[in-house]
């Protein structure tokens, strides 16, 4: 589904990603961990198409298409979803209005008819149940006045609405209390199918108790320096990154 090869990217002339290789197949869950400043969020942003970053080398293929040549909105319409670490507030724009446009743009891209008002409302109702998002929030302005937990739930709600092929969740667990973490993580698990894939970027093993990864990667200085199965996350939780970093820095 996603094939990233030797990806280099920089911002303001500073190289952040220095040769990423990553392959994600349908049905898989990957976790990307690593110390602060290692490039995790940059990787997510570059794959999503944030124009702030410049790709200087390498390639990325998504569903057989050249990801890097597409603008951000086309990547989204093709089925790439980025759950933001800091979801943005959009005053005066209701969730319903926003999601209706988003869902119908995606349908248009796929050559499908737009949803009728009734179909759309039904979809909203169904999907808000996935993350126990109250209907009060879906009628409010996007993220405006939402608590940290509500914002993250709202990201997963939008993911449910858009039904992406590949979801990249950038520290969706940060700032969540235990209950919100459970709801968000359970939501992600419910949405997982053999046809889609999820990449979770996280600092903490606790998220991976709910979302069990097939592969765990450690990102350091803009490269994936180590990959393993879910036991790697447990070892990192116990021992930290030093054993890997020291090895790499040698």
């Amino acid at each position: 589904m996603l094939k990233v090869h030797n990806l280099h990217a920089s911002v303001d002339g500073k190289e952040i990603l220095r040769g990423i290789d990553l392959e994600v197949k349908a049905g898989e869950v990957h976790a990307i961990m690593g110390p602060n400043g290692s490039g995790k969020s940059t990787l997510a942003s570059v794959l999503a198409g944030n124009e702030k970053f410049t790709v200087t080398e390498g390639s990325a293929e998504f569903l057989g298409r050249d990801l890097l040549s597409m603008p951000i909105e086309d990547r989204a319409r093709l089925g790439l979803f980025l759950g933001f670490q800091y979801p943005v507030e959009i005053p005066g724009v209701t969730m319903a209005n926003f999601m209706k446009l988003a869902v119908n743009e995606q349908r248009k891209f796929r050559g499908e008819e737009p949803l009728t008002a009734a179909e759309f409302l039904k979809l909203m109702r169904e999907k808000s149940a996935v993350v126990e998002l109250s209907s009060k929030l879906t009628s409010r302005a996007v993220n405006e006045g939402f608590s940290g937990g509500e914002k993250k739930k709202n990201e997963i709600f939008q993911m449910a609405m858009l039904d992406p092929k590949l979801a990249i969740l950038d520290e969706t667990d940060s700032g969540l209390d235990i209950d919100a973490l459970r709801i968000v993580a359970t939501g992600v698990t419910k949405l997982h199918t053999p046809q889609n894939a999820t990449v979770v970027i996280t600092h903490y093993q606790r998220l991976l108790d709910y979302i069990v990864p097939d592969v765990v990667h450690v990102l350091y200085k803009g490269r994936i320096i180590h990959s393993g199965d879910k036991s790697l996350a447990l070892r990192l939780e116990k021992e930290g990154y030093d054993w890997l970093i020291n090895e790499y820095d040698k």
Partner: peptide
């Protein structure tokens, strides 16, 4: 708000739709 435009585009809205929505919201 450039961040909000980026956020809306990530959900599949075109840049002009995102701008219009933001002005409408304002």
């Amino acid at each position: 708000d450039a961040e909000a435009i980026l956020y809306m585009r990530q959900r599949g809205l075109s840049e002009s739709q995102a701008r219009r929505l933001q002005i409408e919201g304002f």
